[in-house]
Nucleic acid binder design. Sequence first.
RNA 1: GUGGGUAUGGCGCAGUUGGCUAGCGCGCCAGAUUGUGGCUCUGGAGGCCGAGGGUUCGAGUCCCUCUAUCCACC
Length: 395
Amino acid sequence: MLFDHNSILFAGKDGTALKYTVIKQEGAAKRACFETVHGTVQTPVFMNVGTVGAIKGAVSTADLEEIGTQIELSNTYHLHVRTGDTLIKQFGGLHKFMSWNRPILTDSGGFQVFSLAGLRKIKEEGVYFQSHIDGRKIFMGPEESMQIQSNLASTIAMAFDECAPSKADRGYVQASVERTTRWLLRCKKEMQRLNGLEDTINREQLLFGINQGAVYDDIRTTHAKQICELDLDGYAIGGLAVGETHEEMYRIIEQVTPILPKDKPTYLMGVGTPANILEAVERGVDFFDCVYPSRNGRHGHLYTDRGKINLFNAKYELDARPIEEGCTCPACRRYSRAYIRHLLKAKEMLGMRLCVTHNLFFYNRMMAEIRDALDEGRFAAYKREKLAGFAAGES
RNA sequence: GUGGGUAUGGCGCAGUUGGCUAGCGCGCCAGAUUGUGGCUCUGGAGGCCGAGGGUUCGAGUCCCUCUAUCCACC
């Protein structure tokens, strides 16, 4: 393996070794290798979103392996509500439950504070949700989120935060971020306690902190400095791509990434389009996740090197070409746009599955290309060509 | 053959005692969607209201004939 030597060990909590190795840099862009108890992740990486322990669109973990995905993301809130983290712990943890032996990152439920805004109340102790499934009351604070994630036994747990709307006023954001910091301290303490327990499935569970502050540069940078003092296993930038402009998003990333430790993973939560990812890699981000490839796939929006196409469009009804010429994904190797369009229109599950498969393949392949480009010191040129292709569209 | 019902955009229907640019759902054609409620939202196209005649200032609405179709009975 190219990455086994040159490995630098960084002390994580509880004396466990956090093995995150930056192999190459090009400007602020990082090419790294991240070793976990569930295997090694090559970054920059895209985490495939499987909120409830499954990629929506009938894509199995076997499919994920065939596509070549490295890491999966699931959600604390959703798995807690259905089917329950204690059940999953009894079963032996999320890896065993969903038959996936590579790394899993669990989101904390913090995003649901934003996305389920109409169904929750925020207090200092935590958040009172009204279940979106059956309306029952659910309390989730930092301790509960850590306990659930410990029960799920994911590789990486995310801190419980509040993802505030980008348009929130300064006073609200200031107070929210301060509370998120207090919550982070409680998360770290609880995580240390849980990792010390005999019956904890993954006692080397990692904890990533999350930077917040909406579009206020000074709140962002102050908060970033504070959370870095806690010496966590990795750092995420949250609260972006929630309504602000791309320019604002890129500006915040530029403000924050220089503050975050270079020797730890940097994760930009929920982002984004292929272009967003290229821009963020350039600014030093190496972990990404986004629902776009799966959600857009389900809706027939397909990513290609020549931009996005909408397979529902009538112009594809007799198109014998694959979704993307030259693509080696399972959908493109065998099926035409016309057939997949028919499946989508007929609401056949296979249509969604092929589209989601293609999109995930596209994202994961792009990340591999980014890593190759960084390895060879030609990321800037790669990015320029890629963006030009997206903008050009189909001929 | 007799009696009754129905004919309104691709499909299913609303259209008040006749009144102004004929609506709705689905479908169709486009667009949105960034730590996922298999949703949702936003636009757009498409109808000489079965055919012909009549009453009226004015008919999808009332009258007559025809056609098609459905139900019941012979």
